[in-house]
Computed example of a mutant assay.
Amino acid sequence: MSSKSMMLAAALIAVCLLAGCRGGGSGSILDPEDVRKGTKGLEMDFIERNPPDEIYEDSTFSLGIELENQGAADITQGILKVGIDRTFMEWDQAPSQVSSVRLEGKTVTRPSGEQDFLNFRLYARPLPPNIETHTTQITVTSCYDYKTIAAFDVCIDTDIYGQGLFEKACEVEDLTSSGQGGPVAVTRAEPTMLPHEKEDRIMPQFRITVANKGGGRSFRKDLVKEMCTGATIDIKGFNTAEVNAYLSEEALECRPHYVNLEERDAEVVCALTEGIPVEFGSYKTPLTVTIDYGYTDSMSKQVEIKDVR
């Protein structure tokens, strides 16, 4: 290949990369900063007219459910449970009322996250002789594992008494966010530079606010199966999430390690207990907060069963 041809090929490859060329895809590309935005996770909806608003007794009908992972984490242990009033309905062809869910989250090349469609067959029992119509409810509950990662650029300033020991490269300030691609989010991080037990060091501390921004409830991440199968769960497993934090690559000591989100938000205090040398001055560095949790949400629809008499 001539040098001119090689230059042309390189230019075409560069254009393709900038334009987001992907085999078999739509070509849409999401800005990396937008991947971890928002407060959604697994979203559910009934497929139109599945089930219908009205059905007849002694007949089968379809229940269709659309699932989409609209957050930034992958769902690897999801469960979907369908609840019906067995006095008036039953499963057709003996299917399971529980289905497993595994959906990848949104990425730079998949802005909407992975989707799935589930279909169930149900049977409407004959109504009692003295009843012409009855309204019953179908409830769908999701339980799944999830992870939120919040990343901030924070200012570290070792001149905690303002003695002018060095030129300031940044200012210590509170940080806020509306969401990081999951229903549980870090909404605020308040940094404080504290004295250390060693005089030549300071201790960065961060007061972090974690909030449940979704419409469901969080629970301990290892209880996905129990949450959707009616197993007995210790009350401490509800409305909780595990929080870890890192300053650059150094793990911080966080208390409490599990936050209680029963009131929708909670605070955790994380500190670099080993400290930072005063001689480091002021500089910016990444603060990363990870939240591991399970999440459950539900939706329901009323269906009217009519007699055929």
Score class of each variant (00 low, 15 high):
Cys21Thr: 04
Phe46His: 09
Cys16Ala: 15
Gly41Asn: 02
Asp31Tyr: 04
Asp53Met: 12
Leu42His: 01
Gln70Arg: 15
Asp45Pro: 00
Asp85Phe: 03
Ile47Tyr: 03
Gly78Asn: 02
Leu80Glu: 13
Ile79Met: 15
Cys16Glu: 10
Ala72Arg: 08
Ala73Met: 09
Ile47Ser: 09
Asp92Glu: 13
Ala72Thr: 04
Ile65Arg: 02
Asp45Asn: 15
Ile79Gln: 14
Asn69Tyr: 07
Trp91Ile: 04
Ser28Tyr: 01
Met89Asp: 07
Ala19Ile: 07
Leu67Phe: 10
Cys16Tyr: 08
Gly38Arg: 07
Gly23Ala: 09
Glu57Ser: 08
Lys37Leu: 14
Gly83Gln: 11
Val35Met: 14
Asp45Leu: 06
Thr39Cys: 13
Leu63Glu: 11
Met89Ser: 08
Arg86Phe: 09
Pro32Glu: 04
Ile84Gln: 11
Gly23Asn: 03
Arg49Pro: 00
Ile75Asp: 07
Gly20Gln: 00
Gly71Gln: 06
Arg86Ser: 13
Arg86Thr: 15
Thr60Ser: 14
Val15Glu: 11
Phe88Ser: 11
Gly25Arg: 03
Phe46Tyr: 13
Val82Tyr: 02
Asp45Tyr: 05
Gly23Tyr: 03
Met44Ser: 12
Met44Tyr: 05
Lys37Pro: 04
Gly23Asp: 00
Arg36Thr: 14
Gly23His: 02
Gly41Thr: 04
Ile29Pro: 03
Glu57Asp: 13
Glu43Trp: 04
Leu30Phe: 00
Leu18Val: 14
Phe88Lys: 08
Asp53Phe: 07
Pro32Trp: 00
Thr76Ala: 07
Gln77Ala: 14
Glu90Pro: 00
